[in-house]
């Protein structure tokens, strides 16, 4: 029940974030959505994710506020407003239809399949020595995945440095 309330809060926060007039309040609203997501992870028994989400959310807010500070722009509504909205809503309706069809195939909430992970659960502690099974999966069974994640992080840092540096001008 509390999960339903939290999800409704997240949807309302996301609507405010998308529709707010000035950018700073929209950034604050998306921060509220992120912290509600952190609480939802705690309720769904994923404490590692809640910690990570908290840290990442704070960093994201700092970056977004840096981008939007003193750059408020009024939203312009002109041109083909009606057709654009209609097209967007039609696309979302088609998406919802297919997604709802696909949702029927999934197992119900609260009954996961656990086909792959059964072996990890039975042999995880013996093979890796890790008490926390999430740590056992990301650092031992699927360590290449984490290596790829670190590669993506460093590639992104290089990209940010390349985009934001100020090149010297040759006279």
């Amino acid at each position: 029940m509390e999960l339903h309330l939290l999800l409704l809060f997240m949807i309302v926060g996301a609507l405010i974030a998308v529709e707010a007039k000035d950018l700073l309040s929209s950034v604050v609203a998306v921060g509220a959505v992120g912290f509600a997501l952190c609480l939802a992870f705690l309720i769904l028994k994923a404490p590692d994710l809640a910690i990570t989400q908290l840290v990442v959310e704070i960093l994201c807010l700092i970056i977004l506020i840096r981008a939007t500070l003193r750059k408020d722009l009024p939203l312009v509504i002109k041109g083909r407003w009606f057709f654009n909205t209609l097209g967007t809503l039609a696309f979302i309706a088609v998406f919802l239809f297919f997604a709802h069809t696909a949702l029927q195939e999934l197992p119900g909430f609260g009954h996961p399949i656990m086909a792959v992970v059964k072996r990890y659960l039975q042999q995880g502690t013996a093979q890796t020595g890790a008490v926390n099974l999430v740590a056992a999966v990301i650092l031992d069974f699927r360590a290449y995945d984490t290596l790829g994640e670190a590669t993506v992080l460093f590639a992104s840092v290089i990209g940010i440095m390349a985009v934001l540096r100020r090149p010297g001008r040759i006279k």
Binding site: C60, I63, L64, V137, D145, L153, S156
Partner: peptide, 21 residues
């Protein structure tokens, strides 16, 4: 609960931060 999606989402959150930045 199933630890495998949790491990994958842990990766996905950090990559999301990199993409946003």
């Amino acid at each position: 609960v199933d630890p495998l999606p949790q491990a994958l989402v842990l990766t996905s959150i950090v990559i999301g931060l990199a993409v946003t930045a």
